[in-house]
Each structure stands twice: as C-alpha cells, then as structure tokens.
Design a protein around this nucleic acid. Sequence first.
DNA 1: ATAAAAACTAAACGCTGTTAAGATCAAACG
DNA 2: CGTTTGATCTTAACAGCGTTTAGTTTTTAT
Lengths: 209, 209
Amino acid sequence: MPSKKSKYHHGDLRAALIQAADELIAEGGIETFSLRAAAQRAGVSPAAPAHHFGSARGLLTEVALLAYERVDRYLEEAGHSDDPVADVRALSLAFITFTLDHPGHFRLMFRHDLVNRDDPRFSKTSRKPGMRLGLAVAAYRRKAEVDLDHFEDAADVLCGMATLHGLAHLVLEEKAAHFFADEIAKDFVNKGLPRVLEHLYPRQDANSM
Amino acid sequence: MPSKKSKYHHGDLRAALIQAADELIAEGGIETFSLRAAAQRAGVSPAAPAHHFGSARGLLTEVALLAYERVDRYLEEAGHSDDPVADVRALSLAFITFTLDHPGHFRLMFRHDLVNRDDPRFSKTSRKPGMRLGLAVAAYRRKAEVDLDHFEDAADVLCGMATLHGLAHLVLEEKAAHFFADEIAKDFVNKGLPRVLEHLYPRQDANSM
DNA sequence: ATAAAAACTAAACGCTGTTAAGATCAAACG
DNA sequence: CGTTTGATCTTAACAGCGTTTAGTTTTTAT
C-alpha cells in the first residue's frame, strides 16, 4: 500500500497519467497534449511515463480506449425504447453529440500514428460502438438480427456506420452547415441535424419514399 | 530571371518545396514529412521555407490544396456517361480509389492543425469535389438540379457526401472488410466495394428499395 | 554604378520524445 | 529485525523538430 506522505513514489501514477492526458486532450485537443505536459500535471518528471506506458503512443492508446468506452456509454444511454425509428435517430444524435462534446478524443481515436491499433484490446473495444449502431440500423430495417455472412446485412451496417461517421466528421469540421439556409445553418446541431436524421431514417409506414 | 549556375538562389524554391513535401507525404504519410526534410530534399537550409510559406502549416496548406484538386480530377475523369446510376457508382469508387492511392494526402486534408482552413482559396477548392458528388447524387435521385435552399435536397447531398467520406475512411482504416465473409474481405476493394456501391445506389426501375 | 530588395545561410532557442545511469522507497525474505 | 531485491521515479543528456535573428549573397531597380 502506498503511503500518503511519500513524495518519491506516486502511488498510482499510471492512472494519474491517463487522467492527465485525458484532461489535456479534453481541454485543447491533441495539440495541447504532450508527454511532458501530462507528466508535469501528474507531478512527476518527464521520464516517469516511460516505465508505465513505454512511449507516448502507449499512453494515448489508453486514452483512446477510454474514449471508445465513453462513446459506447453515450450510445447505451441513448436508445432503448420500443420504437426502432426513434432509437436509430437517438443513437445517431448521441454519436454526433459525443463528437461535439469530445472533439479532441474523436480525432485521437482515428489517428493511427498516435494509437496502437495492434493492441489486443483495441479491436474489441473499438468495434463495440459500431456494432451497437449496426443493431439499431438492423432493427430499423425490420430485421430480427444481423447476419454478417449475409452480404446485404453487412452492407447495410457498413453503410450506416459510414454515414454517421462521415456526418459526425463533417459536422465537427464545420462543413455540414454550409449546405443549408442561414436560418438552419446558424444552429445546425439543434435545428438542422434532427431534421436530417428524420430525412435519413424516415418512418416507413405510409411513406415508402 | 534565375541563372542556372547560381547555387545560392534556387530559382523556384517555392515550387520545389511544395513538390518535396508532396513526395514525402506520398512516400510515408504525414509522419515522414518534416519541414527540415522537405528543405533538405529541395537542397536548401532548414530556414529557407519560412520566407516562402511563413510556417510549416503554410507549406502543408499548399499540398492540401493540390490534393483537393487531385481528387477533383479523379472524379472528373470518372463519370460522365449518360447513365446516372453508373455515374454515381463510378464517382464513389473514384473517390475511394483516391483515398487508397493517396492515404497520406487524404489524412492531411482533414488535419485542421496542419492546414490553414482560413486560407481564402480553401473554402472554394475543398468544396468542389463534394459538389461534383452532390450533383451526381441529385441526378441519381432524378432531380434536374440541386436547390440547397430546399431542405430535402441539401440533406440528400450532405448524407451522400457523409456516406462516401465515412466509407472511404473506414476502408482506409481497414475497418470495412471485417463486416464481410473472408472470401470478400480478402480483396474487399475489388470484390466487396463494387457490390456495396450497387447496394447503396441500386437501379430504381423495378426495385423501389 | 550604386542603392535597395529579395533569397538564402548559419547559429541559436525552446520545445519535443526517448534513453541511460543513479537515487529512493516498498516489500519480501532469511 | 536487518538485508536484499525489485519496482519506481529523478536527473541529465541526446537527437530531432519548427522557428527566429542576424548576416551573407544575389538579383533587381534606380
């Protein structure tokens, strides 16, 4: 057990460094992060992180994994109603909300130069949010379950993910609002996005298209 | 006029640096690029680029603008048939082909920390490929011309762009093939992607969905 | 021919991630 | 209980980065 007064040994430096890096990225994106800055925030020397994470990449990989779990929590809390249409819209909105709440983390997640994609935990953790979305799309398409061996199902899930991923990216980079009239563009997230999602996932009862 | 034998003055250093940076990014992505490496490749000192571009960001902005023009050329050469369905598929395939041909440039184009989005040329140049795609989508939807003041049209264009942007991103990050059976995944670009695009943009004659 | 402007170099500054060697503390063991 | 072992962290250094300053060379303009 770590003593509280000891200054040489931190106690739980590993967790402290992850939190410091997470905060830095939340505050100013990846540009703000540096290994030395994270070390300083945790109150240790610049060389301390090496022993716990090997490299800056190792530390950022932990932050990225946390971010994947975080977006999954966004999705988990978004849609569990008995209405598949409302669900898929809510999940989509939640995903885009996440990217706007955590732009730095969103960008980090897809920086293969900063994150260890070979990490054994990565494939599982990073796929989870996408799968959650895929299930919602499948339910919207009135399919009981997705069979990825069935080409049409896999293509549905892939395209659904792609659209949302791209949409989130375009919104984040402020390239989405330009497509709309000023009134909508001014507050696109609140005024335009819900309508876009309604357009993307219309109720199919009477309106077949 | 620059004399050929003068070693002190380069002649057209500006163009040479852009080409050097472009090559570096083509060879090994943004990780390979550094201002000093580009300067060395052009045969000048590390401080020389500053006078022409101000900063590394300035140089990379030029490379990014060239990349936008390049993807536009890919699209231009892809689809001008009399068949809107074939066109939109060909344009989509061309866009994804570009990202696979030039992954480093594709990633650079969306790095707002490396590219001057405020550059007056940027908004026009970067919007051009998207608009070309939007027109194809509109033609596919059997609309004579897109009226961005009409919400449905704008949403169509935005979602079309988003899907392709996301699809390209997923393919590039090798997250797309996992959705398909091994046989297709093995050579996804050739075997899976065309079928995905057919799924995404089906012929609407007898098949309304 | 001379003055002014442009293009480039050399050297330095502060920053980065990483490494090597040494100091410190916690825990395990005889 | 004292000693030893191993983990943890520091200090100091290295190479590389983008950028700045001051000075040198070449071109251009007067």
